[in-house]
Design a protein around this nucleic acid. Structure first.
Lengths: 222, 222
DNA sequence: GATTCCAAAATTATAGATAATTTTGCGAGT
DNA sequence: ACTCGCAAAATTATCTATAATTTTGGAATC
């Protein structure tokens, strides 16, 4: 019906649904009903089903035969799992990217770090943070590895948004600057070590809720 | 029509096609035509399209919008990429699995190693090899990580089969035994180091072709 | 002889329709 | 009041049909 710009329908649907799942707009465990999604996008359920397959492959949805597909649930265990996988894969990517990093790329990464420090909300911070991480690993030129890292970032972002639902305070990201400093000095190994620790850093932090009390949430950085 | 045993149709189709792609039965770059696949499985193209989405997510097929899907091509660069990803992720998995490995599991892994050494063909060797690798990492209990490793193993197997198409000679796998020895001694770090080197070991080896000449192929071990 | 163009055939992508299964709501029985 | 079971509604999964796009083959042209 509407004129698309060469982006295939299942891709578009899965991308929009992925954004909603990541941002927490759709709750974990919520059912994704193909007909409802179809009418919303003015499509039929065939492309919707294909979109569901994509979401499942990304780990954002789970499908039970004959019983439909639900938004994937997640717990602290999986948060840790994703963090460790990110650490392993991003370090690998950085080691290969290191030799090909130009001064211009590092400047761009520093700009992303600044943007993160000045973010007004989690959403903006997450976007800047992801830009930083992607910039320093992209030159590895390993498409499969980069795609895997992207999927893990999506999962990370999901956890992040679920933790800091409402309150947010910006803070300067010392790890990012330390990584950049090491890379500028040509010390890729040193940068990789900091990156691994940075990504895996998962702690616990009391957060003021809207009601005025405090609750303990896990904190994700990087 | 036919009675299904609770395995969903797209899953079944994608699994069969994946086997063919991995074994080299379908050549890289070959077109996968939905109607042809559909009639072969006695189905329509709707479940076939969903199967194609799965294959694409696994990295076994690539889809160009409006132009159909083809079996993914691969080159030496990607072989190396997959090997390095495997090394990074399997080491991570082994580190977590280490403390939970029981004597019985290690015995089973040793049995898999023996089976590999006595394999009559590549196919059998690959199956035993995969069993070994899966056995020693499974106790990490990280489902997402294990799924990622499985996909990488599928890619590895593909490369393996394309290299050793016809000739094959069994040989004893010293690395597997060294890994087991280290694990039995409780030296998980040592085992992880050997595993990383083992998986990444990619060399070059002259292979006799059916025509009688020799050509240079890459060799994969692990 | 090679190239370009056009029409026919094949193929992809989506829509609409149908069968089968699961969920839901309500009433009967305890 | 609670549970069990059955019937109605909703939903999934698949098939058939249709529109749109790409590929293919051949004839006309340079």
């Amino acid at each position: 019906m509407a004129k698309e710009k060469s982006e295939t329908l299942p891709v578009r649907i899965s991308r929009v649904l992925a954004e909603r799942i990541i941002s927490g707009q759709i709750e974990p465990g919520a059912r994704l009903r193909q007909d409802h999604v179809a009418v919303e996008f003015g499509a039929s359920h065939v492309p919707v089903r294909e979109a569901f397959q994509r979401l499942e492959a990304q780990g954002l949805a789970v499908s039970e035969p004959r019983r439909g597909v639900r938004v994937a649930a997640f717990d602290l265990r999986e948060v840790r799992e994703v963090a460790e996988m990110r650490a392993a894969l991003e370090v690998l990517a950085l080691r290969h990217a290191g030799p090909h990093l130009t001064r211009a790329m590092l400047d761009e990464a520093e700009e992303a770090t600044r943007a993160g420090d000045n973010s007004p909300d989690v959403r903006a911070w997450e976007e800047a943070n992801r830009r930083f991480h992607r910039l320093i690993v992209t030159p590895c030129a390993m498409p499969r590895l980069l795609a895997a890292i992207d999927d893990l970032h999506a999962a990370s972002a999901r956890f992040l948004f679920s933790a800091w639902r409402s309150d947010w305070e910006a803070r300067t990201d010392h790890d990012h600057r330390a990584i950049l400093a090491a890379l500028r000095a040509g010390q890729v190994d040193e940068a990789a070590i900091i990156l691994a620790r940075h990504v895996q850093w998962i702690g616990s932090k009391p957060v003021r809720t809207a009601a005025g009390g405090t609750r303990d949430v896990f904190a994700i950085q990087g």
